[in-house]
Structure formats: structure tokens, C-alpha cells
Design a protein around this nucleic acid. Structure first.
Lengths: 314, 314
DNA sequence: TTGTAAGCGTTATCAC
DNA sequence: GTGATAACGCTTACAA
């Protein structure tokens, strides 16, 4: 591998002059520039990016921790982060976590080791307080409402829209309303928001049997549908965990030849449009973009992003 | 920032002994280990990842060039790459290109500068020959059939399945069959495969008016639908560019209150299932995993991955 | 078992 | 304008 020193030696100039030519910084006489450039071209020299990063003390990398990479929540978020990162000349590094705390700790360690300038947790298994502890090593941003934890955050303001969704069901006269969630009430801010909204609208907590957790894929949705079908009384409506998941749920009802409950989707995906479902658009791309801005600015702010209930035209 | 030298100084041992303790390599006496570890803990020391990469001469990063980050082709591919990369302890860096050749050249330059150990082009605007030229600087893998260009490649074997799809339409008696494609015939191997399959089945090239290019999103699909609606004779069937795009196309027909043509999807997405569309599953996750394997093995092989026509049960 | 010292390939500070 | 040289922070022969 040819280095800057090789160029210096062969051109007869010093390493620093070569560096100036390469980085087009400060004055170098045209003649010198040409002479050096000639050697650079001859040796097909390219400066080493890692050495550069080391010398500069920054990487321009931002790590994005993802529990799953195939869920629309994450793909939309990543998309938003990428758009913003691209404009700011940062690179996005994908870090799969599967919600495993040891993996998450590993990424925190990487941040501490300056592998990334900042870390964005699109979701996390570790307690918020533990993430917060690592902020002394670098910027950390989360994509959920951190409430009283003073950590930078950009997140979908879900609560009001969930209320709107349940109001819609209430007006329709639906009584037995199920909820599909990806994680347990204890662990997930999102599940908590759904349950809280239910309570606000219906005045009671949803029956435990009507809250299905562990649902993240269409196949999970199908399983959830099978569970709901087993109940003694039919379910009137379901607030699903995503339009795609609603498709899976329908699979179960279709197989059982039972007419399906009224469904509300989330994520505003084409599948929801195909089914002509009301859906909740959480504007995750915007959330992602905001999260990135927090990541590079180092600002400690909590930025809610409005979500929106989208009802298909009749 | 505390460095390995600080630890050496404060513990009274040498830098190399400290390094051994940190990396748990070679023998260090338990007493020494403990003494050093104590200082490490006290100073809350963590080794610098960039310095490590520089010293080792590898980054364990693989760059993935993506024209779009919101298209299912790319998300599925990325998903497959991530799974494989994770197992091999590599990190995936996302590189948006929008098919702009100058961006792509920039990423090639980054490879040359050892910012990545390898580069995977999920698609590309630059000619294959130019990509191939850069292989002397590092491993480059493409995700399309490179035919006679000797570049590592993992790709969906589309042709036979496209033939199957057109056979299905032919048997149904569809005569006027449109094709939705993302890029022009000249630029895209995929478009070429679709047109070739059409010709194989119907014996003629598709009419130019029935090949819509520039279609990558549901909104594009809607525009394509509007175009098809303007034709003097109705279109019988459309091989769409993706299930999600079929949803967009239906939007146009619905708005016009015209009954829609028979649609075939691609990508096997939930939206296709919702519409009960026949669809083509290109197994892009597998393609991604294979591409990654080529990226790190350095093997120069061309790996076709079978695709599959999926017809919904009636 | 531990230490010395030479890399790894840049950038940046100062002198000249 | 250009050049020495010291960082940057780590790994790794080789020596002891």
C-alpha cells in the first residue's frame, strides 16, 4: 500500500506539503502541486480513511440500533435518519439488537470507544436510565417519549391519536375491542400509550385476554387472530400493530370462515390501503430525521412528532 | 481522553502489557492483570476503536449502496445482508445513491481509501465495467446478473419466473398486457428480463405504450394507472413492479371508476396478500445473504437465487 | 512474564 | 511556500 510518505519521498517534497495538496488546503505553489499530483497519479495513491479519522478524532458515523430490520416502524425510521444523515455528510451504521441487552451494551461500549459519533436507539431492551448513564461517552438519542428521563428524544406523539382511534370504535358501537402490541405493557412505552388511550375512552382497562403482545410480523398477527377466535364472545374490533399485521390477522379469520372484526391499522402502509383500513400514520420518517438532528447537534431536547389517523374515503 | 499510555504510566506497567490485558491475549500474570484492570476501571478507560482499526488494517465495515431506502427490494436485501453480516461480526453501512453516478464514484473512492472492507451494490447507475475496474481496490459485489462481466454477483434469477407469470396471463386470455418497470430498458437488467420474458411468451415485443418506466413507488403506480387509462383500448393485465405499486395503480382505476385489469405483483408483500394478487417472490433476503458472503470471502462467483411465482389460494 | 520501540497513515503546529 | 516533527491511540515483533 502506498502512503503519503511514499509520495513525499518520490516527489522530493515533504509529507506536509503532500498533505496540503491532497486536502487542497493552504497555499501550495502551482508547480509543486502539479509535481506532487503527478506522483499521486502515477502511484495511484489514495489517502487512508481510517488514519484520517484517527487523526481528526471523528468518524462521521452514527450508529442506529434496531431490534428488527424488517418491521415498517424501523424501515421508516431508518429512511428518515438516512435522508438527514446524508445531507449532513454522516454515514449510517445499522446495529441489530433483537432487544438483547447484551448486544445493546456492546453498542454502548462501541460508542464509548468512539466507533460512532452518536447512537440512536429506535427502541431498546435496556432501561432508559442505563442508556442515560452512557451519555457521558457520547450522544445518545431515543425514539420514544422518555417522560422524566432527561435524554434526547424524538418520538411519535401517539397518545392523542390512539384516543381518536378508540373514539372511532366507540362511536361505531364496538364493545369488545382487542389490542395488538409488540411488547409487554411493562416494557413498551407504545403498549402503555395504547392501553392508556383505551382506558381514557372506555373508562376501564382492556381485558387481559384482549391484549395480545409479542406481535410484530404478519405471522404473529395470524396467531393473534387464532387466539381471538378462540374466545367465547366474538371480538368487535382490533387496534392492530400495523397494516401488514392486520393482513396476517385476516388470514386467521379467513381460514376459520368467520367474518372479521373491524380493524384499525398503523404505519399507513400500502397493505392498509389495499384493505381500505383506517390507519395511524406516525410520521416515522420525520421522527427519524429529528432524531438524527439531535444526534449530531448534541442538543438535549425531547421532540414529539404528531401522528395522524387516516381514514379511507368511502 | 484517557489512553493506553495513561494506564501504563499509572499502573507502572508497559503499554504492551496493558494491551495484552485489554485484549486478553498472551500470558499476563494474574497479579499484573488485576493491578492493570484496577487502573483501567478507575480511569474508566476504553480503547479507541478507530486507532484499533488503523493498527489492524481492517474495519469490519461493509458498505451497501442503495438507490432508494424505502423500496421493498432494498429493504429485503438489506435485511438479508444484515443477518449475514451480524453473524460474521461485520457492520453494515448504508450508502444512499439515488442512482447518481457521482455519488457512486464517491463510494468507490471510499472503498479505495479503506473506509470499507467491501462494497455491495444493490443496484447501480455506473456501468458494470466501471465497477469492475475498482475491484483492484477491494471486494465489490453486485446484486444483478452480470452476464459476461466477471464480477462477484448474487442475484434473483428472474427470467424463468417472469415467463411463468406471462404464461399465466396468456392462459387467462389476456392480450393487452402492460409492464411496470423502475428503469429504462437500456439501463436495467430487470426491465430487460421482463421484456425478454414477454417476448418469449407472446412472440412479440411489448408495445412501447404498454411499458411504463420510472415506476418505483405507489404514487408512481398511480400515475402509471392514469396513463394506461388514457389508452384507446383497455389494458387486460399488468405485470407490476411490486405489490405496493399495484395498490397505487388500483388507486387510479378506482378514481376513474373503471374496473381494474388483472394484476400480478412482485416482492410478495402483505399488500399483495391483501389484494389476493399473484406475486413473484424473488427471495431477496437470500440474495442479500449470499451477496454478503461473497463480500467477505472475496470469492468471485455468480450466484443466482431462484424466484417463485406465488398464487393465492382461491 | 514483561518491556522496548517500531509501526499503522494521517493531520496539525511551528518554524524557516 | 515548504519542511520537521510531534501528535492521534493502538498493535506487535522482538528483546530481555
Amino acid at each position: 500500500m502506498t502512503t503519503i510518505r511514499d509520495i513525499a519521498r518520490l516527489s522530493g517534497y515533504s509529507v506536509s506539503t503532500v498533505s496540503r495538496v491532497i486536502n487542497q488546503r493552504n497555499y501550495v505553489s502551482p508547480a509543486t502541486r502539479m509535481a506532487i499530483q503527478k506522483v499521486v497519479d502515477q502511484l495511484d495513491y489514495a489517502p487512508n480513511a481510517v488514519a484520517r479519522d484517527l487523526s481528526r478524532g471523528r468518524t462521521f458515523n452514527v450508529g442506529v440500533v434496531l431490534p428488527h430490520s424488517d418491521h415498517p416502524y424501523f424501515t421508516q425510521l431508518v429512511h428518515g435518519i438516512m435522508r438527514a444523515a446524508f445531507k449532513a455528510n454522516y454515514r449510517v451504521v445499522l446495529l441489530p439488537s433483537k432487544y438483547e441487552v447484551n448486544l445493546e451494551r456492546g453498542y454502548l461500549a462501541d460508542l464509548r470507544q468512539h466507533a460512532y459519533d452518536a447512537l440512536i436507539f429506535t427502541s431498546h431492551g435496556l432501561p432508559l436510565t442505563e442508556l442515560n448513564d452512557y451519555r457521558r461517552y457520547g450522544t445518545i438519542v431515543v425514539c420514544e417519549n422518555p417522560h422524566d428521563c432527561p435524554i434526547p428524544a424524538a418520538y411519535a406523539a401517539r397518545q392523542t391519536t390512539y384516543v381518536e382511534a378508540f373514539e372511532l370504535l366507540k362511536q361505531r358501537g364496538d364493545r369488545r375491542v382487542a389490542i395488538l402490541a409488540s411488547r409487554s405493557l411493562a416494557k413498551s412505552a407504545t403498549t402503555q400509550a395504547m392501553v392508556a388511550a383505551y382506558q381514557q375512552v372506555f373508562g376501564t382497562k382492556p381485558a387481559a385476554a384482549l391484549v395480545c403482545t409479542g406481535v410484530t410480523t404478519p405471522a404473529d398477527g395470524e396467531r393473534a387472530g387464532q387466539t381471538l377466535l378462540k374466545q367465547s364472545q366474538p371480538v368487535d374490533a382490533v387496534l392492530t400493530n400495523g397494516d401488514d399485521i392486520a393482513v396476517g390477522l385476516l388470514r386467521a379469520y379467513r381460514a376459520a370462515k368467520v367474518s372479521a372484526p373491524f380493524l384499525i391499522g398503523q404505519e399507513h402502509q400500502p397493505s392498509g390501503e389495499a384493505l381500505r383500513l383506517p390507519t395511524i400514520d406516525h410520521h416515522f420518517e420525520t421522527v427519524g430525521a429529528r432524531a438524527f438532528q439531535l444526534a449530531v447537534s448534541g442538543e438535549v431536547a425531547q421532540i414529539p412528532v404528531d401522528s395522524q389517523l387516516v381514514v379511507p374515503e368511502t
